[in-house]
Design a binder for these strands. Structure first.
Lengths: 116, 116
DNA sequence: ACTATAGATCGACGTCCATCGATCCACAAG
DNA sequence: CTTGTGGATCGATGGACGTCGATCTATAGT
């Protein structure tokens, strides 16, 4: 089985390339892009989802309902938001979709938050 | 003039002390605290406000209305959200309030976003 | 083909939030 | 004390979002 990816990219791939926000004023467009990714992170359920996936390296949607205490449509909604923000990617293997985090995305975020 | 601070702390001062979300699953409480700070950042106007303050080192509320294109009550609302999240602090000097960023807060945020 | 299960989509509901006009409070200069 | 200005608060409004039941699609096994 070829393990097809189900990742979706809603944000233009070349977004989030600007300087850290502590370096120079953000343009409205840059601020919109960054706010969209931060909004994907700014939810307790999605943060816990992300931390579970990261801690396990990989997690299946069906294994997230119980620890997060949310219904299946809600889990599907949150994985969708996170994947559209580029923070996680999913591989369908058989009936299951296995999610893992995108380290580069978090690194980009950390850079934009002003380090260095 | 003694330059009194107008900073407000809405989040308990010892919050955001947990491990990076890539290290271990977040507890619901930790996720709530982190989500609150991220929500403060997840707005285009507040991101631009923050970047302007950071770029200038210090900025007065009255100098933010024009570049941000928002009304005075809206600017006041956004500075309130950011200061309650601990991301900026304000000093009242005379009639004006001068805002500056809190580098430690951004550093904490970067740490929680998984980097080392 | 039939059945069972994982996940996505739809529709609705309730809540939260960004925004702004109007108003009130704080401070400083006459 | 009065006036003018910077900022905070209030109330209303419109839109965005989290949540879930119901339903639809996709895949696997029999």
């Amino acid at each position: 089985m070829p393990a097809r990816s189900v990742a979706k990219a809603a944000l233009s791939s070349d977004a989030l390339c600007c300087d850290p926000l502590t370096e120079a004023p953000l343009s409205p467009g840059e601020a919109d892009d960054l706010a969209q990714v931060l909004a994907a992170l700014a939810d307790p359920v999605r943060l816990r989802l992300l931390s579970i996936v990261a801690a396990q390296g990989e997690a299946c949607s069906c294994n997230l309902e119980v620890p997060l205490g949310k219904s299946q449509p809600t889990i599907s909604h949150h994985t969708r938001v996170l994947s559209e923000a580029g923070l996680i990617v999913g591989d369908r293997r058989g009936k299951w979709i296995w999610w893992r985090i995108v380290p580069d995305r978090l690194a980009t975020l950390r850079r934009l938050l002003g380090g260095r």
